[in-house]
Design a protein around this nucleic acid. Structure first.
Lengths: 109, 109
DNA sequence: TAAATTTGTAACCATTCAGTTACATTTTAA
DNA sequence: TTAAAATGTAACTGAATGGTTACAAATTTA
C-alpha cells in the first residue's frame, strides 16, 4: 500500500479536508458532517492523512480533533516547483498565466 | 474515471516519466527502456499523462515523441502553494526547513 | 447507572489501477 | 516485398481504493 503525500492529495475529498482544516481544528464528526459520504469513510480518509503526517489527531474526551500539519505538504510542493522555471520558459510569464487562469475560471464556473 | 493532475502525479512511475521528459523529448520505447515494467504499462502511463495535458505526443514516422507540457502542472502547484504561508507560520522559516531537510537527507541516504 | 455520543474498525462490495501477454497496425529497412 | 521495429490496444489478473453497514469501545450526560 503506497502511502505518501502524493497519494494523499490525489483524492478530492482529502484535498477538501485539508482545505477545511487549514482554517480550523475540527472533530471527526464535525468534518464528516461537511461531506455526503458516511462517517466511517471520512474516518478512513483522516487515517490516511494522519499516516502521511498531513494532519495530527489529538484525543480530547471522547472526541478527536484534527489539526493540519501543512509542513508535510512541502515535499510535494518542492517536487512540482522543480518545473516552475520550465513552465516559465514556455509562457509569456507566470503572472500572465495566472491572469488567464483566473479569467478562465470566471467564464467556466 | 478520475483523470486530473493530482491523480496523474500520484503514481511514482509517472512522476519519474515527468522528470525524464523535463530534460529531453523521447520516443515511447526510449522511455520504456528506462523502467523495469513492460512497454504496454508505460504506454498506459503515457496515455494518462497525455489525457491530463502534462505531455503531448507527436507522431514522427513510426515513432511517437513525448514532449512535456509543464504548465499543466500549475494547478497542482497552486493548490499546494496555498498552504505555504500556513507552513511558514509554523516553521522558524521555510529556508530553515529546507536546510533541515537537506541535512536529514544526508544522514539517511 | 443507563442512555446517548463520538469514534474506530471489521467485513464486505464494486470499481479502478497497474501490470501482464498476445496480437494488430503502421512504417522503415533489407 | 518481406522482415523488423515501434506502437496501440484488447483481454485478463490481482491488488488497492473508496464506499457501505454493523458493531464494539470509551466517554459523557441525564
Amino acid at each position: 500500500m503506497r502511502r505518501d503525500v502524493f497519494q494523499a492529495i490525489a483524492d478530492p475529498i482529502r484535498r477538501n479536508i485539508i482545505s477545511i482544516l487549514a482554517n480550523q481544528t475540527l472533530s471527526v464528526n464535525a468534518i464528516a458532517e461537511k461531506f455526503d459520504v458516511s462517517r466511517p469513510a471520512i474516518s478512513k480518509h483522516l487515517k490516511i492523512l494522519e499516516e502521511c503526517g498531513i494532519i495530527s489527531i489529538s484525543k480530547k474526551g471522547r472526541e478527536r480533533y484534527c489539526l493540519i500539519q501543512p509542513q508535510n505538504l512541502i515535499p510535494a510542493f518542492l517536487w512540482i516547483e522543480q518545473y516552475k522555471n520550465l513552465w516559465e520558459d514556455r509562457l509569456d510569464s507566470f503572472e500572465d498565466y495566472l491572469y488567464k487562469l483566473q479569467s478562465n475560471t470566471k467564464n467556466n464556473e
